[in-house]
Design a protein around this nucleic acid. Structure first.
Lengths: 369, 369
DNA sequence: TTGTACGCGTTATCAG
DNA sequence: CTGATAACGCGTACAA
């Protein structure tokens, strides 16, 4: 029983609450309180206990704590992928906020595979999580059922309340699609090429595409299937996707990427083909990834509150986990950021109001056709 | 006591091992065995238990399991940052391998701050992890002490055994620096600009810089302080760093980026200044990030076994966690990938052996000076 | 092959 | 304000 009292732990087994209690000559219960509810313990004792903790180098056992308290103080986060930079801001903000709140993060990815997603969520649930952050709102019904049964708070992100009956923190993706389309329409574009991710695997892509359709439709511009390609998010694949657009004989004056990666790949492909951007073709993305401002020319895009989403999700879930009724926050609005990859459609004069500076790059200014 | 037997769980509290045992009319111990060591249970019973589990929708309680078995089946991973793509391949591979092995991942980041790192590792240790993946080998002694005291298996990654006395999985960063420098020397370059991350916060940067120094020194090319800038990894910051190089009056014919982000920022900055790459200045990175192959021109770089590192670290740590003596694996070698951003130094003819194709981009071919 | 009984390290409920 | 004592849900010697 008696352990080696040398500073750096005994030969085996860690220092426990009881060891601390013994050294401080109090009961284990009091040590526990001194740690969790210090206000309930007389200062003198508290000090003695603190000393004992320090002397023994006691580290609480989170597992035992979780078993007894029935709360793990860990949240899960499930994102489609780590391999592009899209969700890293959200995850990073989520993690940082959790850390401040005393929670830890189990992070896992689905690779855009819903079977995989439910498996991984199940693992998280077994493991014990007090809440779960999901990306998007389209998830297996079994997933939602599991969460409901186990009474695990969760939140859909990168989506809004309009998208689903579940709590959501994000933005209106459809509106995002509209913004992009309306902007290009205002520049005189009528011939579009759309480079999207698989909408059956990403409700974000679905919403944005819908928004684009809506805006174009209102302007009397139809969108034919040949004008849309779907691709994965590997830059090579995106380039092939964009190339496919041209192979189909499309001659878009503007290409809309479903996100900045898709736009970036399209930009590369166009430039590789010797097209001038934005003189020959305009390109716009979505998300304002950190490279976007630094491509050549800089990529026009829409800024999304990615970090806010992560931070808010953390706060919301922790509030629920602690029994307080979490409130869904207001986030920053989407804002379109016109940069160097978009310009007036060839043959269309630039309207006065849209004469943003473009770093002195030459611009086509022909007469109205 | 008696719970509601309706399919989707009773009103409160989850289904436990005892519930399953009761329904299957066996002892809890047998159910436990049926789950963990099925071979020890007679098939008939096993089937009955399986049926009971299915009927009740039993999900094991990982917390209780961890407390009893003294193993959490969770590993920690600590990376410097999520915000650039550098470590995502490693983390992704680590996570995926862990998932296959039945382990979960606690992921956290340090933002290149060692105080933060030790705090976060301490949190992970409290929480209970069976092993820990660290990036690099330079860590607070208190961190190593903590890990040793708690007997937590760990591994340094992106480093080799030569770098530290601790187990390491990665590559020789110094050799990487040498490769890059030797390659540029072979192209006739003698005037270099180096764009690095803070070597006091990243042993990777330190090693690579040392390798560059070594190779240059052997070739009789000195490296003066004015030729080196240190910057953070935000593209904007990198561009400023690169600009600083020119502001100091440097006229490098080749710029070496400490990683692909640093090279990318430098590429943008040079192009922004109207310099032709590689005709006026060559640029090379390190890491072969996924954008590298797709910049214009494509970025020359060195391929690192990033995913292998993550996968191997997972296997190594799990082996240790399960009591098997983990063996440090052999990884793929570094390989230099010459692409479009590097060419012969201005005024130097391209040697025959190095006439790699460069996608038909015009090339300077002047006479030997 | 299966069951009994105890322990894992805390928290939480009640007395005192 | 503090101390017993009983959970928390499962793993695992040990016995049968």
């Amino acid at each position: 029983m008696s352990r080696n009292d040398s500073q750096p732990l005994g030969p085996k087994g860690a220092v426990t609450l009881n060891d601390v209690a013994a050294l401080a000559d109090v009961s284990a219960a009091t040590v526990s309180r001194a740690i969790n509810r210090p206000d309930l313990v007389k200062p003198a004792l508290r000090a003695r206990i603190a000393a004992a903790i320090a002397e023994l180098g006691y580290v609480p056992n989170g597992t035992a704590r979780a078993l007894a308290s029935r709360r793990t103080k860990a949240l899960g986060a499930v994102v489609p992928t780590f391999s592009n930079t899209i969700f890293s801001e959200t995850v990073s903000a989520f993690q940082n906020r959790l850390d401040d709140l005393g929670y830890a993060m189990f992070l896992t990815s689905t690779e855009y595979d819903s079977a995989r997603e439910i498996r991984r969520v199940r693992t998280l649930v077994e493991r014990g999580i007090d809440g779960l952050m999901l990306v998007g709102y389209q998830h297996d019904v079994a997933l939602y059922a599991l969460l409901r049964e186990r009474r695990i708070p969760f939140v859909n992100t990168w989506a809004t309340a309009e998208d689903s009956p579940y709590p959501a923190i994000g933005f209106d993706g459809r509106r995002g699609g509209e913004m992009v389309a309306e902007y290009l329409l205002s520049l005189g574009h009528r011939d579009f090429g759309i480079v999207m991710g698989d909408p059956t695997k990403s409700d974000r892509m679905q919403s944005r595409l819908q928004g684009i359709r809506d805006a174009l439709g209102r302007a009397g511009v139809a969108l034919r299937p040949e004008q849309i390609v779907f691709t994965s998010y590997a830059v090579e694949a995106v380039r092939h996707g964009c190339a496919e657009l041209f192979a189909r004989g499309q001659k878009p004056t503007a290409i809309i990427g479903g996100n900045d990666i898709l736009a970036l790949g399209s930009l590369f492909e166009c430039q590789h083909r010797g097209m001038r951007v934005p003189e020959d073709v305009s390109i716009i993305g979505f998300g304002n990834a950190n490279i976007a401002a630094n491509t050549i020319p800089p990529l026009s895009t829409v800024r999304t509150p990615s970090a806010e989403i992560g931070r808010s999700a953390a706060e919301y879930l922790v509030a629920l986990a602690e029994g307080e009724g979490g409130e869904l926050p207001e986030l920053s609005e989407l804002v379109l950021i016109p940069r160097g990859t978009t310009g007036p459609a060839p043959g269309v004069a630039l309207a006065a109001g849209q004469a943003e500076s473009r770093r002195g790059r030459p611009r086509v200014r022909s007469t109205q056709d």
